[in-house]
Design a protein around this nucleic acid. Structure first.
Lengths: 137, 137
DNA sequence: CTCCTATTGTTATATTACATAATAATATAT
DNA sequence: ATATATTATTATGTAATATAACAATAGGAG
């Protein structure tokens, strides 16, 4: 009963990612937020007034899938939408949104710290650079 | 328009994983196989006679979700199921399955090589060990 | 051997993530 | 001024993954 793919980088990458995403989801659950919600809140805070389209490009979420995410966050009172022109909106955090975004960032910090702590020290500094090389382009 | 999470290891991990999984899916599409199909074929070849349950434990797929995967691969003529006892089956590759498994392994090899090639040399050797530290437990 | 418990494969079902196509309104460029 | 592109949106489909329930059966305890 051996794992024939255990040393394949792509396989290890997806297993590690799946496991860490699961962990993060557990940690966000008490806030009643999903990962996409959390990233959107943080990105809006860092980019006040951003449009759904531009936001979607940053976080790799298609416009069509953005709609329900944004409208749910609006209904929860975390973000506001103000018309920029006839077709696009400026997204901003409300006060309530800023508050929960603080909680989110705390959870993210904890999550990232625990994640990095699992990686043996000699590999740690190589981790993010290697991932960014795969991801960005 | 900046990505506030770009340097978060968990975020980078999931972005990198998503991108590479997408690539792999494209490469497997010509064989009309999905990633789960490919991993199952390779794992059965490495573990002849394994049961669906044991296989599911290796690849982190729940029994319930294994059913349709296995039965589809059987219908495609790639694997065979032989009763071990009254409730479990031994899974094996058919000749056709062994053939396509060869193609799969070729694609995986190519995929993994291209993936590693994207990672700057100085980080390469640290990549899989770091991921395994996150994933395994 | 018999009874209780655990395991296996299975069905049904729900959720989440993510993809495409079409559309109406509007901005932008020629 | 008109053609084209972009934005937000709706509708829809698929893949991955999770849980609960169930029948058949294996394995262990007495």
């Amino acid at each position: 009963m051996k794992d024939a793919l255990a040393n394949f980088p792509g396989y290890a990458l997806s297993r590690a990612s799946a496991k860490m995403l699961g962990r993060l989801a557990e940690r966000l659950a008490p806030l009643n937020l999903r990962r996409a919600d959390a990233t959107i809140l943080v990105q809006i805070e860092a980019n006040p007034g951003i449009t759904p389209s531009a936001l979607g490009q940053i976080v790799a979420i298609k416009r069509a899938n953005m709609v329900s995410l944004v409208s749910r966050l609006e209904k929860s009172g975390y973000i506001s939408r103000n018309a920029l022109d006839g077709r696009s909106f400026a997204l901003n955090l409300t006060e309530k949104g800023t508050n929960i975004c603080g909680d989110v960032k705390e959870i993210l910090k904890l999550h990232e710290d625990r994640l990095m702590a699992r990686i043996p020290e000699e590999h740690r500094d190589h981790f993010v650079p290697a991932l960014k090389a795969l991801w960005s382009e």
